[in-house]
Design a protein around this nucleic acid. Structure first.
Lengths: 217, 217
DNA sequence: TGATATACATACCATACGGTTGGTATGTTG
DNA sequence: CAACATACCAACCGTATGGTATGTATATCA
């Protein structure tokens, strides 16, 4: 292998630094408004490095979406919301977890692939498909718990497990837009609160308060 | 003769045609990826006309957001969902109306100001503020009916009227993102269905089926 | 009828953009 | 050690971009 060599540990190789830069800069400025030079400057690499690792700017977009899918999958897989024995508690713990992630600067808590989807859905199908895979792949990780909760409690539902899983992502994405419109993360949390109330009602339990992490940021 | 002069009703003056073009093209390609030339070509005017009416591209963005606010306000003001005597029925009729609007090509039913907010929130405050005004101004038009419904039915709520009004917009915006990710408007309708179920549950009534207009498009 | 303002059109400009080229330093392999 | 591959850099290129300068036809009004 040629690279790392474990020497000069600046902060990862050029490719990873470009992907990290893409994750943050694109969430701030959007994909189209982010130039290749922006990314190179933010990553501290040259244009030569950029086009060595990515054939085109669109190719970086695809790679950034995949990188996002990988890193967020890892984050959610390790997260503590899987602990409860009761599947409904796991679902609610997931929503609590998502709620707790909202805060700080807008680019820190909003969703890269949601942002990119909005921009490129009609003009860059490869990027859009990578974003869709990330969004719906994550939604699918909720389905087992939702299904188990429904069966365990014998809920006679007129909604599908898949649609509820997708709905949670829609609420989050929409909350991010309202938060961006005002620069205020409270607007995203607010919608998650309504979503939590909805899920509690669907399963016939009393609405739980927004958990411990009420005040952060 | 060079200009309209009330003759040759091509389809409005240059300014309006540019705003119409902006509404459609920006919803397809996004704001940053839409060039001034794109807009001029789509509107059938020259660049001279563009910069005669708008000082900068950002100024057009602001004007497009305001134009969107005006035209959608007029649409919703005229819509039939205000007819029912019961305020809750009006709220549900509003959601039904929104649901029925979803269909056709993505650029035909998605929200211009939601799209622009996502892109420019951090780099073009004037556009962002115009978008926010449109979104929250529209949300505010729901508050009277929500409040009346709550009082009439003596609901003891742990949520604010304003937050529920905003939540409806968040769900719509989020639904649009999922729809864009797949090119399928069903994903937006699906989330509206969950929202309708939520509102019915909040007010303690049985969930109504998605109204008459089930199959369109 | 002349002065002025409006509503465009044409031609042009400086810059920023995505992408290419040619090169070097370093490591890997047989 | 020769041959090759990888990772990266600096300089450059053609084009597209937002914006400007200037011209012109029509409408308004004193």
């Amino acid at each position: 292998m040629t690279r790392p060599t474990k020497k000069s540990p600046e902060r990862g190789d050029a490719r990873t630094r470009l992907l990290d830069a893409a994750r943050d800069v694109i969430r701030q400025k959007g994909f189209a408004a982010t130039s290749v030079d922006d990314l190179c400057q933010s990553a501290g690499v040259t244009k030569g490095a950029f086009f060595h690792h990515f054939k085109t700017k669109d190719a970086l977009g695809v790679a950034a979406a995949n990188y996002w899918a990988e890193t967020t999958s890892a984050l959610f897989a390790k997260a503590p919301y899987h602990a409860p024995d009761d599947p409904l508690d796991r679902v609610l713990a997931y929503l609590d977890f998502r709620r707790a992630l909202i805060g700080g600067e807008t680019y820190e808590y909003t969703c890269l692939v949601g942002t990119m989807t909005q921009e490129v859905h009609d003009s860059a199908p490869t990027i859009r498909d990578a974003c869709a895979k990330s969004i719906f792949g994550h939604a699918a990780t909720l389905e087992a718990d939702i299904k188990a909760a429904r069966e365990q409690r014998g809920i006679d539902a007129d909604w599908t497990v898949e649609s509820l899983a997708r709905h949670t992502q829609a609420v989050l994405q929409g909350g991010f837009i309202l938060a961006k419109a005002t620069g205020n993360p409270d607007l995203a949390r607010e919608s998650v609160d309504h979503l939590i109330r909805y899920v509690c009602q669907l399963f016939g339990i009393e609405t739980k308060p927004p958990s411990t992490t009420e005040r952060e940021n």
